[in-house]
Amino acid sequence: MKRILCVLGLAMLVVLCAIQPACAQVTAYAVGQGAVNSVEVGVEVRASVRSRCGFATGGAPTGSVDQADFDQSGFTKDFAIQLNCTGAARVAVSSVNGGMATQAAAATGYGVKAPYQVALKVVADNGTSSTASCDAATLATGGSCSFAGTAGSATGLRLAGASTKANGSYLRVSAPSYAGTAPLVAGRYADTLSITVSVSP
């Protein structure tokens, strides 16, 4: 009698598997019996890093030039720049006076503003760089220099790669001895440059 019951039970199991074929693909074992159960699933993980761009700590160009008798000797000086940009960037420069200007009273036949040049070089971490040079006069409001004004998505000298290291970027101001037709009036001459940086598409 017991043997007959076992045969009937086996027949029922076969019928169930025939009705539900999936039961033949997954086998569950009790702890310590058979192979370890393993189910493979796919989990998609996504993340993003937002672009950042500015000057590194202590990396903004600062300082001054104080050259006596610059009309005769000229001057040149570099100001180091270190950016902290994780992608493409733009750098722009603006000038308050558009040249070296004095507050001294103008005298007939004398000049009160001397021209000078501004050069900009920005270097990416991969070694690529962008350079440009303009007269200070073209950096004043409405000036025509390619990097004049305030940096924005479409304004300023564009650097295509990320730049986060001290890699040789600089702002250079220079002038040869003054060659204008009107001699410069005696006095203190000055200009102020402002440099800005922005993320670029």
Rank of each mutant, 00 (worst) to 15 (best):
A154N: 11
A88W: 01
G32F: 09
D71H: 10
D69S: 13
V91R: 12
S174A: 13
R3Q: 15
V39T: 12
R46F: 00
G9R: 01
G109T: 09
Y170K: 15
Y189M: 03
G142D: 07
V15E: 01
A60K: 06
A119N: 14
Y29E: 05
D71M: 10
P21M: 08
F55D: 15
L157R: 01
P21K: 07
V45L: 15
A18F: 09
I195V: 15
A190S: 14
A92C: 06
T128A: 15
A179K: 14
S169D: 06
S38P: 00
T27G: 05
M1Y: 04
A175C: 05
E44D: 10
A11L: 14
A104I: 07
A190G: 08
A175Q: 02
L16D: 10
S163D: 04
V199E: 13
A114D: 02
S64I: 01
P115F: 00
F79H: 00
G58E: 13
K2R: 06
S146D: 09
A11P: 03
S153W: 04
R172K: 15
G180Y: 06
E40V: 06
N97F: 01
G161S: 11
V123T: 10
N84Y: 13
C6S: 14
Q103P: 00
S198T: 01
A136F: 13
V26Y: 02
A179F: 01
G34I: 05
A148K: 06
D66H: 08
Q25T: 10
D78P: 02
V31H: 05
A47D: 11
S144C: 02
A114T: 05
A56H: 12
L120G: 09
G87F: 05
A148N: 11
G87V: 01
G54A: 08
Y189A: 01
G127D: 12
A190R: 07
L159V: 02
V199Q: 11
A148D: 02
N37P: 11
G111N: 13
L193R: 12
G42Y: 03
L157G: 08
C17S: 07
V199P: 00
T108L: 07
T181M: 09
R90A: 05
S38Q: 14
A124G: 13
A104P: 00
L5G: 10
Y29A: 05
F147H: 06
A92D: 09
P176A: 04
S95R: 06
P176L: 00
G99A: 02
D135W: 09
R50M: 11
Q67S: 11
D191A: 07
T141Y: 01
A148Y: 01
T62Y: 09
N126G: 13
V14G: 13
G143W: 05
L8F: 11
V36G: 14
V31I: 12
S144G: 11
F75H: 03
Q33E: 15
A24S: 08
V45S: 05
G74D: 14
Q72Y: 07
V199D: 11
V199C: 01
C53M: 03
T164P: 12
S51K: 12
A60R: 05
A179R: 14
V91Y: 07
A107G: 10
A30I: 04
P61S: 08
S73C: 00
V65E: 08
L157Y: 09
A175V: 03
A92G: 04
S51R: 13
K77V: 01
V118K: 02
S194L: 15
A114Y: 03
T86G: 15
C53L: 04
I81Y: 07
P115D: 12
G109H: 05
T86Q: 03
A154V: 04
T138K: 07
Y189H: 03
G111R: 06
G63T: 10
